[in-house]
Simulated assay, not measured.
Amino acid sequence: MPKRFKLQDYSTDYQQQTNQLCVLVTGDVIYYKILKLIYKSRCKSLFKDKNNNYDWGAYIDNEEGIQQEIESLLHMLQYAVCIADSLMQSFALDYYYQPYWDNDEGGRTVAGELVNKAKYDRPYTGLHQKALNDLCEYMEHFIQKHKLYKQADLIVSMPYFGHKEFDLPSYLAEELSRRFEITNASHLVKKTKATQPQKSLNTIDEKTENMQNVFKLDSPEVFEDKAVIIIDDVYRSGITIQTLAQEIVNAGGKCLGLVGAKTIRG
């Protein structure tokens, strides 16, 4: 089961003598790896906060606008769920339900409520369309703040088998493709057979077996050397999105996962 994280706190401070930005974070070091992927050689070595107010820190070579850019990213990551799976990066906008340690009532988060309405309300009604618009804007905000996602080459939705009156991941991928002018390659990703719903299966072995030989890429050369955003509505065990991502990786691509909400349990 992939581990998941939330960034707790952060601060930034411009160091004039060295022309560097000092970034201090309370949260797992996976967030340092995120900064390193974005800022590459400009992101310097990890260090321990000598005042013990934060878990770790890093220096980043300064340039105009970078402090505001990093603060906007880290602020957003306080709400998103970072998921340590096999993809280059995976995020959910939030948990589906409030974790019990945050809210004893366990009600849905804003993201969870939007996904629930967009997925299950009667399609093409006013309330359904509002939930779709709000969810798209939520994902748009995430992509806008995260440079790796904004600079992606392709976007695909989690494919389905058979016919659906309405498919939420397909809608989201098409709309985000239009808003960011990222090529939508969803038509090249196929689900080749029907499977049992993953949430109906109890063990990781059952879920993994259920996804064996399920996905196929038409024209796999299209994905070579491309950064690909995979869009889905709900992240449970992560086996489905990781199985699809492996097909894209086998074709030479790199995968970024973005889903509406993460369940507390797999």
Rank of each mutant, 00 (worst) to 15 (best):
E140S: 10
L77A: 02
M76C: 11
E137F: 12
V115Q: 06
W101F: 14
Q89S: 10
Y100L: 10
S86Q: 12
D102Q: 14
L127D: 13
L77M: 00
V81R: 04
D102L: 15
A111S: 15
D94M: 05
Q98Y: 06
E137L: 11
M76P: 02
Q89M: 13
L93H: 01
A111M: 03
K119N: 07
R122V: 14
G126C: 06
G107P: 03
K119Y: 08
D102C: 10
Q78I: 10
P123S: 08
D104F: 08
S90P: 03
Y120R: 01
L87K: 04
D121E: 11
Y120A: 02
N116P: 06
K119R: 09
D85T: 04
K130N: 11
F91Y: 15
C82G: 02
Y97A: 05
H128M: 07
L132V: 11
D104P: 10
Y120S: 00
C136S: 12
C136L: 14
W101T: 13
Y100K: 13
V115W: 04
A84D: 15
E105F: 10
L73G: 03
L135Q: 01
Y79K: 14
L74K: 00
L74Y: 06
Y95T: 07
Y100E: 12
L127W: 07
F91S: 00
K119I: 07
L77K: 00
M139P: 09
Y120D: 08
L114P: 04
D134I: 09
Y100S: 08
H128N: 12
Y96G: 02
Q129W: 08
Q98E: 12
F91G: 03
A131V: 05
S90M: 09
D121T: 05
A131I: 05
A131E: 08
H75P: 00
L93D: 00
A92Y: 01
Y95L: 05
K119T: 03
H75M: 10
H75L: 12
M139C: 09
M76T: 13
V115D: 08
G106S: 00
L87Y: 02
Q98G: 03
